[in-house]
């Protein structure tokens, strides 16, 4: 008996989808909160339709055939969405391997009499689906990397806010380690803000910096010098005792930089140099 694998698969499209969905639903860690059965069915149908309708006797051996572009596109789409939704690699892997399972089951049922045909068809489909799995994983990882990159950008953005604490006083709390790239961002933001607000004092609060080594200190000194060149004064505050110890042990000279232990004392100093005074309001009784 002659078998035409693509024709057979096209004819048994429904069965494949059912088998596949059954495989997916029986998977132990199915994430019902992330994806509904409806969605699974829709994704599976779309993929199987695209696969079986593009499969011919010519391209069944050629995984790089342009006929599969549509399939790969759908797969990439599903994979990237799953990466963003927070599926684990195992779940995404189970999704695509479930299809292979379903196809092989079907072949086993249909081709009973000819072991050689069965073997060849299995081999061909295996090869094809393995290549699809690789694509799925590549896009899955790409999706995850995009998420990581976006988060990195966000962290850099979030972690360098310039706060206007008073007319003419800016504060810049630095949280996390200062490296060259970050210093650059911090410095640019600070200087830009100084120009925009016409502030004459900037407070650099380093209470959120876990450790200060000579490189970090050098970055700090650079920022302070640049601020000074702009015509504003820069105070470094939030120096923890351990950091003071490290600075002295490393032999870093911060003597020509104004340093304060806390943001509060830095603010107090700024008020003094701006000739401002903070007063307690006399209670009403005392006045009357």
């Amino acid at each position: 008996m002659e078998y035409n694998i693509p024709k057979l698969l096209q004819k048994k499209r429904k069965t494949i989808i059912e088998l596949w969905i059954k495989n997916q639903l029986s998977e132990a860690g199915l994430r019902e909160e992330l994806i509904s059965n409806e969605e699974i069915r829709q994704q599976s149908e779309e993929l199987v339709d695209s696969f079986v309708s593009n499969l011919t006797n010519e391209n069944i051996n050629d995984v790089y055939s342009t006929d599969f572009e549509g399939v790969i596109e759908i797969l990439s789409g599903i994979s990237i969405t799953r990466a963003r939704q927070g599926f684990t690699p195992r779940e995404t892997g189970a999704f695509i391997f479930g299809l292979k399972e379903a196809l092989l089951q079907l072949l086993q049922q249909e081709i009973k009499d000819d072991k050689e045909v069965l073997y060849n068809a299995t081999l061909q489909l295996n090869r094809l689906l393995d290549s699809f799995s690789i694509v799925t994983f590549e896009t899955f990882i790409k999706g995850r990397e995009e998420v990581i990159l976006r988060q990195t950008d966000e962290i850099t953005e979030i972690s360098t806010p310039v706060i206007r604490v008073w007319d003419g006083i800016l504060a810049l709390p630095i949280i996390g380690t200062l490296d060259s790239a970050r210093t650059q961002v911090v410095m640019e933001n600070l200087l830009q803000e100084i120009v925009e607000t016409g502030s004459s004092i900037a407070i650099l609060d380093i209470s959120g910096v876990p450790a200060v080594d000579s490189l970090v200190a050098q970055h700090l000194i650079k920022t302070v010098s640049a601020t000074r060149l702009m015509g504003a004064e820069c105070i470094i505050s939030g120096i923890r005792p351990e950091i003071a110890q490290t600075i002295v042990h490393l032999g870093i000279d911060l003597s020509n930089i104004i340093t304060k232990a806390t943001l509060a004392s830095a603010l107090k100093f700024s008020f003094q140099s701006l000739k401002l005074e903070v007063k307690k309001v006399q209670s009403v009784k005392a006045v009357v």
Partner: peptide, 8 residues
């Protein structure tokens, strides 16, 4: 700002 950074 750019000038200040350059000089530093």
């Amino acid at each position: 700002p750019a000038v200040a950074i350059t000089l530093i």
